[in-house]
């Protein structure tokens, strides 16, 4: 490599590393703002602001979903297996919403410590399964219990 090319290589490498460093530091300082949602523990520990619009994420607790008979109102509990947050929502839930499913709810905490959701999104994981396999797995799980 000629000295001129070497110099250009060094300039290019410093551009790449320089921008990575800057962006890295910015992201590090904005860490909490980039997170899409607060976990149930974060809300329980008071890390999430009360009264402000936030998102809460977690698993829907088995057996906690209660639907009102006369409206679209539904209440359920959200957990990260350490703490639990009670959520109330009025509206249409996504197809993937079910007990044991990870979801993200947007809304705010009211003074009674209940999360008033205005939007519920289902979170999907990276596991895909044909229905037959899912059924055999479920049957096996039930047989083991």
């Amino acid at each position: 490599m000629t000295p001129k090319r070497k110099k250009r290589l060094i300039i290019i490498l410093s551009i790449v590393f320089g921008t990575s460093l800057i962006v890295g530091l910015v992201m590090y300082s904005l860490n909490q703002n980039i997170n899409l949602f607060y976990s149930a523990s974060q809300i329980a520990n008071g890390e999430a602001p009360v009264g402000a619009r936030i998102r809460a994420g977690g698993m829907v607790v088995d057996g906690s979903v209660k639907r009102a008979t006369d409206s679209l109102r539904v209440s359920f509990a959200l957990t990260d297996y350490e703490h639990t947050v009670n959520v109330v929502f009025t509206g249409i839930l996504p197809d993937l919403f079910r007990e044991g499913q990870g979801i993200i709810a947007q809304g705010k905490m009211d003074e009674n410590g209940i999360f008033q959701a205005i939007e519920v999104l289902a979170k999907h994981d990276e596991n895909y399964m044909p229905p037959e396999i899912a059924e055999t797995m479920k049957a096996k799980k039930e047989a083991a219990q």
Binding site: I34, N35, Y128
Partner: peptide, 18 residues
Amino acid sequence: WNTLHQPATFTVTEKPAM
């Protein structure tokens, strides 16, 4: 970060979860 998007479907090191 916490994202709504699920983790990678294909990785070089692991078998895909399907």
